[in-house]
């Protein structure tokens, strides 16, 4: 893709478990352009987090990347040594985790955790001594201020548990942003938060993105969040991308029955008194999947032809869907 900062091709990440081989990410291709916000949606267990943990080189045993290419800013990340990869993480791209409380180190103060990132990656700091400590302190206070945490000077000495859920998410964002990464991967940054706090956190990410020209991959399962904050969106189901395109196209005219089902499932005040139409059934086990369309068992439009492997199809210049009906005449 033109102008891509991150380009992932045909990524496959598997976990060897006692029950069998879980193919959490199965042939995912995704690109994030410079300066854009890409939304990634899908039910729990659809492979959103594992896809981006793979990009970050953070998949741990029994998981491993089986195949695929990950190119970031012109470099093939899969060819890098662990040491080179550590340098990319934190400096060029950073990820905030779904659960801020467990992702932050409970034994280190917030100041120490921000300092750790700066120590490791910020090459503009004075090399040693009091000047270096002072510079780190100044940068840390600035970062907390940027994410809207008042009295940063005292707050730096506090530990993660002394902050509310919203503040912890913002602290994680501050840590992720400490070295001004080119790409921020935000994994469900607001799922655990209340709407008023959610609005603050999303606005913060949006402001920083515009200010620094950063790219953002925003993982969420809230389509409302996508509609308001993302330029493009990618819908995942059972380890695969099933639809992608400009947010307005995907949400305004979804082509995959799963995307359509997700949108029809959202209760809306405007639909009072009318029945909602949930997608029946649940996400399949990702062990020993049949080659057929993964959505087959839940799809209201399934037919014989869907029992073959289904490829991504182009519906428009930048709109693709993995469904045999996509692009066919509307019936």
């Amino acid at each position: 893709m033109k102008d891509a900062l991150l380009e992932v091709r045909d990524l496959r990440t598997v976990f060897e478990t006692r029950a069998g081989r879980v193919c959490a990410v199965d042939g995912v291709s995704v690109a994030v352009r410079r300066g854009e916000c890409l939304g990634i949606v899908g039910e729990s267990g659809s492979g959103k987090s594992v896809t981006f943990a793979s990009v970050m080189g953070l998949v741990k045993a029994p998981g491993r990347i089986e195949s695929g290419t990950i190119v970031f800013d012109g470099r093939d990340l899969r060819g890098l040594s662990p040491r080179q990869m550590r340098a990319v993480r934190g400096r060029d791209m950073a990820m905030t985790m779904q659960d801020a409380l467990t992702a932050l180190n409970p034994a280190l103060s917030v100041g120490e955790q921000i300092a750790e990132v700066l120590e490791a990656h910020d090459e503009t700091l004075p090399t040693r001594g009091a000047a270096r400590r002072a510079a780190i302190r100044k940068a840390s206070v600035e970062m907390l201020g940027l994410v809207g945490i008042p009295s940063a000077e005292t707050r730096l000495r506090q530990y993660p548990h002394e902050f509310s859920g919203g503040m912890r998410q913002r602290i994680m964002i501050a840590i992720a942003l400490a070295c001004r990464p080119k790409l921020l991967i935000a994994d469900e940054p607001t799922t655990a938060l209340d709407v008023t706090i959610q609005a603050q956190v999303l606005e913060l990410i949006s402001d920083i993105r515009k200010e620094f020209g950063m790219s953002v991959a925003l993982i969420t399962h809230d389509l409302g969040v996508v509609a308001e904050h993302c330029d493009r969106v990618m819908v995942m189901y059972a380890g695969q991308v099933v639809e992608e395109g400009l947010t307005a196209e995907v949400i305004g005219a979804p082509k995959h029955p799963y995307t359509q089902g997700l949108l029809a499932s959202i209760p809306r005040p405007a639909l009072r008194g009318e029945p909602i139409h949930p997608i029946e059934g649940q996400v399949p086990d990702l062990i020993d999947l049949e080659p057929q369309c993964r959505f087959y068992s839940r799809c209201s439009q399934r037919r014989e032809r869907c029992l073959a492997p289904i490829e991504m199809r182009a519906i428009g210049p930048a709109h693709n869907a993995r469904c045999i009906l996509a692009g066919e005449e509307e019936t």
Partner: peptide, 9 residues
């Protein structure tokens, strides 16, 4: 504060 799908931008 509620994000809505019907509301883009």
């Amino acid at each position: 504060a509620v994000p809505e799908v019907d509301h883009s931008g």
